[in-house]
Design a protein around this nucleic acid. Sequence first.
DNA 1: TAGGTGAACTTGTATGAACAAGTGGCGTTT
DNA 2: AAACGCCACTTGTTCATACAAGTTCACCTA
Lengths: 281, 281
Amino acid sequence: MAHIVDIHLRFTVMTDQRVRRITVVLYTQLVETILKLPIHERLSEEFRNRIAQGIWAPGSQLPSEAELCREFGTSRGPVRQALAALRAEGVLTGGRGRPPRVCGQVQSQSFSTFLSFTEWALSVGKVPGQRTQEIARRTASEEAASYLCLPHGEPVVELLRLRLLDGVPAMIERTSFVLPLGNRLFDFDTDSGSIFAFLLEQGADLFSARHTIDAVAAGEQDAALLGQPVGTPLLRERRVTSSSTGSPLEYSDDRYLPTLTNFTIENNVQHRAGLVRVHTA
Amino acid sequence: MAHIVDIHLRFTVMTDQRVRRITVVLYTQLVETILKLPIHERLSEEFRNRIAQGIWAPGSQLPSEAELCREFGTSRGPVRQALAALRAEGVLTGGRGRPPRVCGQVQSQSFSTFLSFTEWALSVGKVPGQRTQEIARRTASEEAASYLCLPHGEPVVELLRLRLLDGVPAMIERTSFVLPLGNRLFDFDTDSGSIFAFLLEQGADLFSARHTIDAVAAGEQDAALLGQPVGTPLLRERRVTSSSTGSPLEYSDDRYLPTLTNFTIENNVQHRAGLVRVHTA
DNA sequence: TAGGTGAACTTGTATGAACAAGTGGCGTTT
DNA sequence: AAACGCCACTTGTTCATACAAGTTCACCTA
């Protein structure tokens, strides 16, 4: 799907001896596109809703496939596809002869919710906040350069922000953007909200991310910003976000106060965990 | 599938005025069962191998579905099921008109590899080790009782072990087992290897697990065992393992040296992360 | 040379059918 | 009461088919 939402045409026009700017916006038929979602995606969305709303409570059995087919007027294929999607996330179990059951309590998070602090905070009912400490174009640190696959001495745009939940310091974000992305940030008020949303709006091709989670002691800067003593254990998430062609766009070192935030995953015999334990030499 | 591997029949017999014990073992046809794996599971296994061995390198395109069908002599269904399994783990991407590509560098880990320190260590080519500090039956700690859904004052079997990688201290494991499971451990040499494997062998129904990851400062005991100063940041994984009926069997508080171990996950637009960020009040 | 057209190929979606394999309930037998 | 056999129902697996929708590339045209 092309996913073009609208097309902006900007003209500079002379009329009546005055210069005017005209913007013409062509809206494409997004509504059509949404309504034309494939059946099985509409189904899995519907199933997710029912589970979230408790209509299908944890532990309870779902209707049989045949019943779901009758209810939604489709064949077994799409119904099974929708169920498989939820099974792959560990939300459902079931086996031969046994109707599917709601199994996991932990809801998975979409790509954007997991990447964006702002979107995540809103999804858990908190007010996100941010205090930009610094935004600068400078030579990439060794670590950033290696993660971003940049030659030594290449410049990047570095951003240091303190992130807040309901006004309370919760996380420190040190991000390095490759130049094509980073340069756009100078036109953006980094105190106003989600960079992720801004970049997506600008058409950035943020496609995949690799997250590495460990623990570090708070340095002096961390401690001062978070209002904690130096040496406090912090939960660190390092992240490389790449485009759909696989070239790295952004490297971030996020340090969370572990009393406010943690990471959770569910796992079972049928469902391999996406998370892996890694040994570092 | 029943998954009965063998049946042991033990007799005590009098012959020639001597008491003998005879064990008769009935082996069931496991080989048959393995060979009878459904086609799509055999395919996804084969695909996983090819990716691991680099036959299908990251970034490279896979053969088209039609070719795979020809190669394995099946219809499109099973091939697509196998591809879907890998896609659900974020290993493959692709879209309409575009042959699938190997995308993630991070291999997912099976339930048992992720749960068992021993199995994991072997899978990354390290020699796992353990020094049992203590095994005891005592009243559950408040935290363990709450995670295991036990009434206040209920006894559990607590185990404290130092885990090693190639002889180097890497993790501290504090596990509480509910009695039916824990009591069996007194018949087991906890210095000899994997408790997880032992319990499975005993027929324990370890089905699902919820993992919570955060950071803590090393206490005195942690510091002494790991040979680190008090206050060193440790990467903590707390885990509740449950049976297939959902009743908790085991609670563990594992503290890793973050210089040796971390957790990694991959994520993309098409593939929701199983891992979620959680706010703790 | 730049750009459009169309054919060949690819994957995504959906249907219908058939059989394999496991679950649970019922009644009967031991 | 426990064990067994049977039946109805459920999910898992596989096939064959058809069409929708996107990609790629060679070719033609302006």
